[in-house]
Amino acid sequence: MLKVDGLYKNYGSFRAVSDLSFHVEKGEVFGFVGSNGAGKSTTIRIAAGLLKATRGTIYVNGFDVSKEPSKAKRFIGYVPDFFGVYEDLKTTEYMNFYCGVHKVPVAQRREVIDNLLELVNLSDKKDFYVDALSRGMKQRLCLARALIHNPEILIMDEPASGLDPRARVEFRDIVKTLQNMGKTIIISSHILLELAEMCTTIGIIEKGVLVTKGTVSEIQKQLSHLSRLKLKVIGDMEIVINMLKEKPKVSDITKGHGYIECSFDGNDLEKAELLKELVNREVEVFHFEETAGNLESIFMHLTKEDEKNDD
């Protein structure tokens, strides 16, 4: 459905995307994860026909976006990381404008608009000015706009950023509905947990390079040896952090309010030995826990590894 083939993108001397290749099958919900500046938006903008690749290309349903952009664009609905709305239009007028842009026949427009506004739960806001809609509503309107020409692929760049928890849940429900409708969906985010709940496949990109790709469980399996530890100690936490830094299996140490977190690349026995050593070195540990939901630690580990390689 969508195939990224040896993609490179340079901005002057800076390489934003480097030899990126992956494909997304029909009906997949693909989570494109990476930290800020990793190359997600650049890749998405090339797919949407808004940027030119330095080398390589993206095929949308077999059409090369650089050679046949207008054909490729027909298959893509693009939701950018900003709203891009005309605030001086009413909701239906906004939709009607994009119906015109997509050459939807006038006779069909009312039906198309009603159906899409219903899909994104904005039927009761038809006569509202876009300016009067909340952030979450504007995001859903933007999604409805991207669906006007009934694209097979929906590409969303950081769609949930800035949304409150309720809006995120509503958004997730809409994505599920679209998935059930058979749409192929590509969602980018810098928060892995956010995507893990709604994506069938995840690709992690760092510094323009695809670090890993697979289902959430496959990625978790790849790094099952990696766990995240949480420690609470009495006394100076900096001393403990320095001790942990000496340990080769410890990485990604972060200091929270009254606790220390770190990634640990070892088995249970090795975890016990770490605790024993801390106690033997007179660190007063009163809490030692392996934290659940270690997707974030996987993400941290993968992107950290890349940094190490880079150094």
Binding site: A48, G49, L50, P80, F83, Y98, V101, H102
Partner: peptide, 13 residues
């Protein structure tokens, strides 16, 4: 400035 131009460009207008 309104960030709507990209949305026009990614249509087939």
């Amino acid at each position: 400035e309104r960030q709507t131009f990209d949305l026009l460009l990614c249509t087939d207008i």
